[in-house]
Design a protein around this nucleic acid. Structure first.
Lengths: 217, 217
DNA sequence: ACACTGCCAACTGTCGACAGTTAACAGCCT
DNA sequence: AGGCTGTTAACTGTCGACAGTTGGCAGTGT
């Protein structure tokens, strides 16, 4: 008899999730400082677990610690976008390559499925295809079967979501992204790792450029 | 008038460094559990800062946290070596590529310098060229000018050092590595990013293979 | 002899309180 | 008035103590 063991039994663990959501949803906006006593009181916990959660999120890059001055949410910045996308490109291009050489039929089926859903949502005029975009990259990571790379990609994507939180969408850009995804599936299905790498690089370069322009505006 | 500000004023910050050294030098060997009260007492601090340090190192992958059972140093494992080197390769190949396209004359000079020192030490029969191996990869990272990638590479290299701590050296492998480094410098100096990427990939593949064989023995 | 049950010690998780630091304000001197 | 200085309030950093959980051991019953 199995009872699903709670993923986080500890208060600190739960607080990490709660605080992460507060940051990613913009409830604590970029630039804002985090007051430990106030937030701990608001969450109904003591400062200990909250501090651990804050430290954890700062190691994920969602918060910045300043000695004796606490934590704050980092602000978007062109240099940061550039540096972050260099990292993301390094990781996801490698993942695309591995996915092409390790994918199973089930992986390809899953990728096609996500692509189709994305396109349907896009044509139906959906405003937030982010979920499906993340789902696509997630499916690709699953196919790559490289746990440490997957772990890092998740962290980077989180930071991209944070940077993106203040920015607006760009429909033509979304259209191009859908095409990129389709092309990636073709390359992965064919087992062409070199091509998968190249397409991912182009895709991320496009996404980065779009982010940089909407950052200026 | 400037007084050098201490890099870590906080106890927790200092403890991170102390504990990291305890782990990397093998003073706390792989598999061993960390007792919070005992270690806190031994370091002359309370459990609070120590816990923060433990959490920090676990986010770097040097410790593993188990709920209600504390932290322990992870053990080497073939699957882990494989996964870690897939990550390392993704990062360092990208770094090599960026270095080739961004290097300055000063970068090339520095790389040649490190290579020469390494070869001299090797021919003199030095037993631990690790420092210089790390110095080479560091010099390459400097040339790449990608802060987020550099950050991640440092973390990965740390974990490699940990895995390596129980393993023995292999002189012929070291010789091959020196050749790889030289070849990398040539590619970087020529600005041939594609070639730099390929050589780094081959280099890391060789290092990985060597680690896997000395892991079996 | 074996399995089950209930205790017990050791440890981690959490809390509230104290100490130290920082930044802003008021007051004083020039 | 302007700038320096002492004071103070708000916050983070640290500590010791309590609560909850886990794993092992002894004891009991079959």
């Amino acid at each position: 008899m199995y009872v699903t063991p709670p993923l986080h039994l500890s208060l600190a663990g739960q607080t990490v999730d709660v605080l992460r959501e507060l940051v990613l949803t913009g409830e604590i906006p970029p630039g804002e400082r985090v007051n430990e006593v106030e937030l701990a009181h608001r969450l109904g916990i003591s400062r200990g677990p909250l501090r651990e959660a804050i430290r954890h999120l700062s190691s994920e890059g969602l918060l910045v610690l300043v000695p004796n001055k606490g934590a704050h949410v980092p602000k978007a910045d062109a240099d940061e976008v550039q540096a972050l996308f260099e990292l993301r490109s390094a990781l996801e291009c490698a993942a695309a390559e591995l996915a092409a050489s390790r994918r199973t039929d089930a992986d390809v089926t899953r990728l096609r499925e996500v692509c189709e859903l994305s396109r349907r949502d896009y044509q139906a005029g959906m405003r937030f295809p982010y979920r499906l975009d993340l789902a696509f990259h997630q499916a690709l990571l699953d196919a790559a079967r490289s746990p440490r790379i997957a772990e890092q990609v998740r962290l980077v994507q989180q930071r991209v979501v944070l940077l993106r939180s203040g920015l607006k969408d760009d429909p033509p850009h979304q259209h191009a992204s859908l095409d990129d995804h389709d092309a990636l599936v073709v390359a992965v299905a064919a087992g062409d790792s070199h091509q998968a790498n190249r397409i991912m690089r182009r895709h991320l370069s496009r996404v980065r450029a779009q982010m940089l322009t909407s950052l200026d505006g």
